[in-house]
Amino acid sequence: MATSKLAVLALFALLGSVSCQAGGYYDYYYPTPQRPPTPSPAGTHLKVGYYRNKCAAAYVDVEAIVKKHVKATDAGMQAGLVRLFFHDCFVRGCDGSILLDTFSNDTSLTPEKFGVPNFPSLRGFEVIDAAKAEIEAACPGKVSCADIVAFAARDASYFLSAGGISFAMPAGRYDGTVSLASETLPNLPPPFAGFDQLVKMFGDKGLDASDMITLSGAHSIGRSHCSSFTRDRLPPSNTSDMDPAFAATLQAKCRSANAGTDNTVMQDFKSPDVLDNQYYKNVLAHKVLFTSDAALTTNFTSNNLVRAYADFVPYLWQQKFEKAMVKMGGIQLKTADNGEIRKTCRKVNNRT
């Protein structure tokens, strides 16, 4: 126990080289039951409680409507909503562009949702549609689809963590008007990425290495297609350090598919429907699916942060995850000058 504490203290001394976030890590040792709202990201126009006085009918609670629709879904759909937020923000910023079925009269332009990393596995569109329809009926033309995606990811995190992850999500995003499938692969970190590539791809979005390690914890929920990891992680082409028994289990599950079927497996074999720090324990035990997961132990400081997240059950990671989600929600925001408030989330507004 004493050795573990010394290792964590050493980690805190080292984190300066990994994280540029304000504040230290010592305040996470004794979390309070009710944390204050997370401040809006610096340099953005986002604001906590943005919609409180935006609707003509004062009784419309926009965030409560979104939360109601998220609560009505199962753990699989909630995991999909967290992933939807990530995939939206990493391509053209947090602008709801992931939701568009069409945005142009040019049928040769395929929108993001049909890009290789998104189709057919990305989920949650119907939940966003239902929340938007109810909000639009009560408060027309005021609430962006981009904000609904952000609220839904926040609420899904809350339900998947049994209330352990609870934070205020700033709002005020505008919806984008462009969505290109061709931009998904260059922007979304692939499952075969190494540590340096992950740091660069997150850095390109204004997120540091600590944010990357923290947000990777979302792999404690959801399912993955076998095709996303079998080639570079399982025998006979295996060059990874995956636990042999775990690899054999995955092989059996992936090979049991009928011809042409791409089986899915849980990303966290231990607690697949709970958003928690079990992921980091799995990383240390070499029982994770992706090269990008295993890469977190290939850097000295990253490995120590993974150990800290695995050891402090579960408060250290939960609180850092809350902050990282808010920070990610500030990527490449649109304004009234280059965005809009869509009437429906699947297509841009009609233009004169």
Rank of each mutant, 00 (worst) to 15 (best):
C94W: 02
A168Y: 02
D155G: 09
R307A: 14
E134P: 10
F159I: 08
L188R: 07
R35V: 10
L250Q: 00
F269R: 13
Y50G: 02
V306N: 03
E322L: 10
P140E: 05
G163S: 05
A150R: 07
K54Y: 00
E136F: 09
I165D: 05
A308S: 06
L188I: 15
G93L: 07
L11A: 03
V127A: 08
K132M: 14
P190W: 05
L289E: 05
P117N: 06
H69M: 07
H69A: 07
Q34D: 09
A13F: 02
M242D: 02
D155P: 09
P170I: 14
M328N: 10
L84Q: 06
M242P: 00
F312H: 11
K5S: 04
V62H: 00
A22H: 10
F167I: 12
G176A: 13
A13H: 05
E126G: 13
D27Q: 13
N105P: 03
A133R: 15
T102F: 00
Y279K: 07
V62G: 00
G339W: 12
K323Q: 15
P37H: 04
G217R: 01
A130H: 04
T344N: 13
A22E: 10
A133W: 11
G76K: 08
A209R: 00
A57Q: 11
V91G: 01
